[in-house]
Design a protein around this nucleic acid. Structure first.
Lengths: 246, 246
DNA sequence: TAATCAATTATTGTATACGATATTCCGTTG
DNA sequence: CAACGGAATATCGTATACAATAATTGATTA
């Protein structure tokens, strides 16, 4: 009996890179592509994601598409209704509040952890990231800017080197993108950049208290930048139904 | 154009009951059954879950079994390795720490919310739950006792009426069950019952501060009840490989 | 004309079949 | 006798086909 045989029988984590909770093979590509498209607001909330259609676009059969859609459903980006199919998720006002409450609890704690574990390489990567974010903003690519802005948060979670928190943050960030697509009321998006810079500085100096506090303020600020009054949503969906249904 | 047609086009949440992120149709049954079996320690960590085998047991084809396994993988109860199949997850020591760190952050906050929203009906249900837990413990049904003990935590999350936190707690509780299966060192399990009673009392009196504090202590206590030394794990997996491989 | 109901169409749910990959077993060789 | 390598086997990844369900359309009737 070889060592690898023992590992197989006991289910010892075999390769460990990317082996966690992701659909295998080609479904992963479709999953990531759709995810990026949704986060970049290329696919509007509520849009139907027909299995045949998606399969034809990515050149895969319904089997792999279904796996990808289910994965996205689990991370909250897609809603699946029995016998009706998959739709780009359309977070309710209530869910919007919940997501940002969760972020306000978790991300400051993650920032604290990151402040303790961050390396110089990490800070360099984060700075490059902020530059890219800055460029996208000035180039007017709002979708991409939003994607990068979210990635900044997930990268901090990665730096904290805490997989459980990291996965939670990833899911919350993804959903935040949809929420912002639906409910964002401010026209100035530059405020984020400022917070991100301040956070980066605190992290680079290993100032855990400051990092935690800045992150908490930042998220509360984002939350308050949403228009989550009940009426607004009704108007939105009406104009949508009339204006752009196809 | 009817109203329902508009709803379909815009992806408006249609029925809303249990429509969130779960595999459709028969896969759900398999998913829930396997989940309960794993949490009750009927299926040991590391056990291989062959698609054919599971399908034969539940009388479904590989298609639905795969969907169920992927869902379980996403909630952390199952590990899927490409071209090798699915195994009951075997949380590492590190993951054990991470899960309980996350619980120590999230569940106290959830308990605080629950203390504000709890109704008399809820308290009655929780009391009944604790009775059942007590009975299972005295009947020596450890697996069932553990299942109920976990359900107590998820019910509190449900009372808090916060779906985002609720889903997080559910996932963390599930994984905790596996972690306890692997690393629990104490023989006295009655300590939990005590904490649960204290927590229930605080909740019933709408004492948010007390509820939060009790829950935090409770989880830290659980965390400290684990034997998470590196060496212990090596011995464990060795004895397992020799002792019960089939 | 508006509403209701039935037949049609389209899409998803499920099962099965085929191809790819990893594992296992056995024969060979140093 | 141990170690290596190749063929056989088993399991997973993917595609396709059929069945079940929901959505749509059109005809009929009050």
């Amino acid at each position: 009996m070889t060592k690898s045989a023992t590992a197989a029988r006991t289910g010892e984590s075999p390769h460990l890179h990317e082996v966690f909770a992701l659909p295998p093979g080609r479904a992963l590509d479709i999953c990531l592509n759709l995810q990026a498209a949704i986060i970049e607001h290329k696919l509007a909330p509520g849009l139907k994601l027909s299995e045949d259609e998606v399969g034809e676009i990515y050149g895969g059969s319904r089997t792999v598409v279904r796996a990808a859609l289910q994965a996205l459903a689990h991370s909250g980006l897609v809603t699946i209704a029995k016998n009706r199919g998959a739709f780009v998720a359309k977070p309710s006002i209530r869910e919007a509040h919940e997501v940002f409450q969760a972020r306000a609890l978790i991300e400051p704690a993650v920032a604290r952890l990151a402040a303790e574990t961050i390396t110089d390489r990490d800070t360099a990567r984060l700075r490059a990231h902020l530059d890219a974010e800055h460029q996208a903003l000035h180039a007017g690519e709002m979708g991409r800017a939003l994607l990068l802005s979210g990635n900044f948060h997930t990268e901090i979670a990665d730096i904290a080197d805490h997989r459980v928190f990291s996965q939670m943050v990833r899911s919350l960030i993804s959903r935040s993108s949809l929420i912002i697509a639906l409910y964002w009321k401010r026209s100035d998006t530059a405020c984020e950049s400022h917070s991100h810079h301040a956070l980066l500085n605190a992290l680079a100096e290993h100032d855990a208290d400051a990092a935690e506090e800045i992150q908490k303020s930042h998220i509360i600020d984002l939350h308050s930048g949403l228009d989550l009054r009940e009426k607004a949503r009704g108007d939105m969906s009406l104009s949508e139904a009339l204006g752009r249904a196809g």
